[in-house]
Design a binder for these strands. Structure first.
Length: 852
RNA sequence: GCGGGUGUGGCGGAAUUGGCAGACGCACUUGGUUUAGGUCCAAGCGCCUUUGGGCGUGGGGGUUCAAGUCCCUCCACCCGCACCA
């Protein structure tokens, strides 16, 4: 009997698919389209198991949808701009472009053996000038529509590397590479007006009912719309022309408990006060020093300083509230000023106790609150409260009513107005880096900022740059930087900032619909293929990438690049879990861990030892595969040893796709053994022979149940459950005393049901069992509803809800007959002891419950 | 602190949505075949037990003839956000 040899059959079928063009997508009005997409990879160098899991899931969906008659688009590309390429260029020399394209070539060659149903004819990298040139043209369109602007913004500046650092590159206030103290610098930068769309981006989340709740919540929190009241607190005596302080609150109902007003150290009023008061100046300077590092700010104690100014309480003007400058007030939030309500806010209470400020109850709850000690009384939103001073015509209200009543009252009296506040800030897209999409504008001393002419796009990155010196190479590249003004023709300078790489990934999915078009999109293709029906990727992109893509869809629609029908980029989103693996470590002389590759460790029974020396190895709990922990399993090695089908089958088995799956050698062996077992069963059923067997009917019923079960599971992304049903069906086929005809039929169906997961093995089985054409193109089997119902059913009999026995009855037996049979069974007779049941529940075909 | 999620055998996890808890896989035990085997085949495998049964889906309570599933409450862990005004 021949053995399963993946190294032979896998390339064979991959070639067959390529030759038949099975996965090449073209528009076809006769079939429903289905666009399935996995988040495209960054070409870091090699693919890892996370990629394998991600793309396998997408592939299952894609192949299943082909089977169900859909015209499937399943493309792949490369998110190819970004810092690692520049870092590599600095560390090992060479050019980011070479490094990137080499990595792409390597990873493409690693991906192809996985047998993914990808339309490779649509492949592109975001660093291709053909792609980023179109992106530049979109940028100019956004400019024309007023969706782009420039403003000053703070950046982390590394004075040694002469570069801007992302927040995650700042470690303990120092640059991650240079270790130099990071400075805060003001730079004029480019921004996208994402805030223009904030309301729509928030409200449309409700319609994304096929997105995980978690992601929708995270986006909603990120946009952070709050409704509240902006109050003008009048200064008792104006200070240098300032007459009032604007304060924003989401809890206007607590206004009567206001004990103080506090402003941020960066507040204009604070800055004005600094000039005449050295103590205040010292305090503010102190706060700013803390402000550099956010982790410091978190730990810092709440401190403040009295300005000596007083404001009037809008409802009780006779009350003067002190104005403080406090370190925990942030200029970016609201108006940069708050009123403190110590009785009902813990932070304000702590502050008030520290500085001896008054604590005033705003309201008591209906059951009369205890006096405030060290714990603020925070009424629940739905709780009825009674104002101590009922100024709004209401004296008892729930939190929401109280808030509304206060806002209405404030607007009527004119000291406040309703305000909706957003947390979402505009998207700063400037990056002072080389390896990104150049921003296509020119700075002219005469004309100002001038967009590059369309016919000059793409503004290509120059190749002749060096990374030996710190700073942005574009800045010191005179022939590239110096360019005539597109408007007046006089000498001018190119913008040397490039775009955030999130821009590249905000519209790539649209570009896949017409990757070679001379315009960013082509209407008939975008109209046909958009939206992406199913998007699959990691939860780490829950906020930025997905939010930016949603913004781009709207902005591109505004510019005519997307049809009105393309409402959202991704109709359905699935976030898959990671592939984890144990970590192996030994200790060095100082007790520090030294990590070891799984391939260097031998595990037998309970112990693990180094293969080379036999030294015992500490096994640390499973974690995300990472180079530094050396717990990476290389997909290439697994494919070489077991084949792609085994790797695919394994990553789909056992764990639900949204959870992490632990990579284990035993699990991979089990997957491989199972595929071999299916292969042997198929080989045994190969001989044509029409003999029937006693289990033929049972096998067919089981087959139809499996068809239905696997179909439902794939639709529901329950791949682990689908795999389990296929295991169970394999057991049934193996044990059935059935004729070869029935077994052949069963195995052909099994091959089809497995094809989305193990496409090569399935083709091979399909082929030897006489299937027509390629299984990749075969119509997905449909379960016969009549075969799903058994003639006889086993009904458990419960006494008082506890299962005691069972009866086997014809499926459609009349209720009365079931009752009689149940009552006649030994245990029931015994339990009733001659009496009658108090109640008798019969759920036909399901269960009998006798209540005594 | 706010928000989201998870909790089921030794382990990963099923459960047609209120109807036989533990499917399927791993690990383990026993037996068999071939044995060079880490192959293959068969059987067993929640816990307790006086072998009659009792208990059992994080704890407690409730609804119901019936609860892993619904409600209340508490606990633990994971993830996200956060001096958010």
């Amino acid at each position: 009997m021949s053995r399963l040899t993946p190294s032979e059959i896998e390339p064979k079928w991959q070639a067959a698919w390529a030759e038949a063009g099975v996965f090449t997508a073209t528009r076809d009005g006769n079939r429903p389209k289905y666009y399935v997409l996995e988040m495209f990879p960054y070409p870091s160098g090699r693919i890892h198991m996370g990629h394998v899991r991600n793309y396998t899931m997408g592939d299952v969906i894609a192949r299943y949808k082909i089977g169900t008659g859909h015209n499937v688009l399943h493309p792949m590309g490369w998110d190819a701009f970004g810092m690692p390429a520049e870092n590599a260029a600095m560390a090992i020399g060479g050019h980011p472009k070479t490094w990137t394209y080499d990595n792409i070539a390597t990873m493409r060659e690693q991906m192809k053996p996985l047998g993914l149903s990808i339309d490779w004819s649509r492949e592109f990298a975001t660093c291709d000038p053909e792609y980023y040139g179109q992106q530049q043209s979109i940028f100019l369109d956004f400019m024309e529509k007023g969706l782009v602007y420039r403003k000053d913004a703070m950046v982390n500046w590394d004075p040694v590397d002469m570069t801007v650092l992302a927040n995650e590159q700042v470690i303990d206030g120092r640059g991650w590479r240079s270790d130099a103290p990071v400075e805060r610098r003001k730079l004029t930068q480019w921004f996208f007006k994402i805030s223009d769309f904030a309301e729509d981006l928030l409200e449309a989340l409700d319609g994304l009912d096929r997105w995980p709740e978690k992601v929708r919540t995270m986006q909603a929190n990120w946009i952070g719309r709050s409704r509240g009241l902006q109050i003008a607190f009048e200064l008792a005596t104006p200070f240098e022309g300032v007459e009032r302080i604007e304060v924003y609150t989401t809890r206007p109902d607590t206004l009567m408990g206001a004990g103080f007003v506090a402003i941020a150290p960066d507040h204009p009023l604070a800055e004005a006060l600094e000039a005449g008061n050295p103590e205040i100046a010292a305090f503010c300077a102190d706060c700013r020093r803390m402000g550099v590092s956010e982790t410091d700010a978190e730990k810092a104690e709440k401190t403040g300083i009295d300005t000596g100014l007083r404001v009037k309480h809008p409802v009780r003007p006779e009350c003067g509230l002190p104005v403080w400058i406090a370190n925990f007030i942030i200029m970016d939030h609201g108006t940069g000023a708050i009123f403190g309500c110590p009785a009902h806010d813990q932070r304000d209470l702590d502050f008030s106790r520290k500085y001896g400020l008054p604590v005033v109850n705003a309201f008591t709850t209906l059951n009369d609150a205890a006096p405030v000690a060290d714990k603020a009384l925070v009424p629940i939103k739905t709780e009825k409260v009674r104002w101590i001073d009922h100024f709004a015509g209401l004296d008892v209200a729930t939190g929401e009513e109280a808030i509304e009543a206060t806002i209405a009252f404030a607007e009527k009296r004119g000291w406040g107005r309703r305000k909706t506040q957003l947390r979402l800030r505009d998207w700063g897209l400037s990056r002072q880096r080389y390896w990104g999409c150049p921003i296509p504008v020119v700075h002219c001393d005469i004309c100002g900022i001038v967009p590059e002419k369309r016919e000059n796009l793409p503004v290509r990155l120059p190749d002749d740059v060096s990374f030996g010196r710190p700073g942005n190479p574009l800045d010191r590249h005179p022939t590239w930087r110096d360019t005539p003004c597109p408007s007046c023709g006089k000498p001018a300078r190119r913008e040397t900032d490039t775009m955030d790489t999130f821009v590249d990934s905000s519209w790539y999915f649209v570009r896949f619909t017409a990757p070679r078009a001379k315009t960013p999109t082509r209407d008939e293709d975008a109209r046909y293929w958009m939206n992406v029906d199913q998007y699959i990727g990691g939860i780490e992109h829950a906020i930025l990438h997905l939010l930016y893509s949603r913004f781009f869809a709207r902005a591109m629609r505004m510019c005519g690049h997307l049809p009105a029908s393309a409402t959202e980029p991704f109709d359905a989103l699935f976030t898959q879990g990671m592939v984890t693996h144990e970590i192996y470590a030994t200790r060095d002389g100082k007790g520090r861990r030294i990590y070891h590759l799984p391939s260097d460790v031998r595990r037998d029974e309970a112990r693990a030892r180094l293969k080379a020396t036999g030294e015992p190895v500490e096994v640390i709990a499973s974690a995300k595969m990472s180079k530094s922990k050396k717990n990476v399993v290389d997909p290439e090695d697994i494919i070489a040893a077991y084949g792609a089908d085994t790797a695919r089958w394994f990553v789909l088995s056992d764990s639900p796709p949204e959870r992490d799956v632990e990579w284990t050698a035993a699990g991979v062996d089990a997957a491989f053994k199972h595929l071999n077992r299916v292969w042997r069963l198929a080989a045994a059923a190969k001989a044509a022979d029409d003999a029937e067997g006693p289990d033929d009917a049972m096998l067919r019923r089981s087959m139809h149940k499996t068809i239905r079960g696997v179909t439902v599971d794939i639709e529901a992304f329950a791949f682990n459950a689908a795999v389990a049903k296929l295991y169970a069906f394999t057991n049934t086929v193996a044990k059935a005393d059935a004729g070869t005809g029935a077994k052949r039929e069963a195995l052909r169906i099994m091959a089809q049901l497995m094809a989305p997961m193990t496409p090569h093995l399935s083709e091979e089985i399909w082929h030897i069992l006489g299937g027509e054409g390629l299984i990749a193109r075969a119509a997905w089997p449909v379960a016969d509803p009549q075969m799903l119902v058994e003639d006889r059913v086993t009904m458990p009999i419960q006494i008082n809800g506890k299962r005691k026995t069972e009866i086997s009855v014809p499926r459609d037996m009349a209720r009365e007959d079931v009752e009689k049979l149940a009552l006649a069974s030994d245990v029931v007779v015994k339990a009733l002891a001659g009496g009658r049941p108090r109640k008798l529940i019969v759920v036909p075909g399901r269960i009998v419950n006798v209540v005594t």
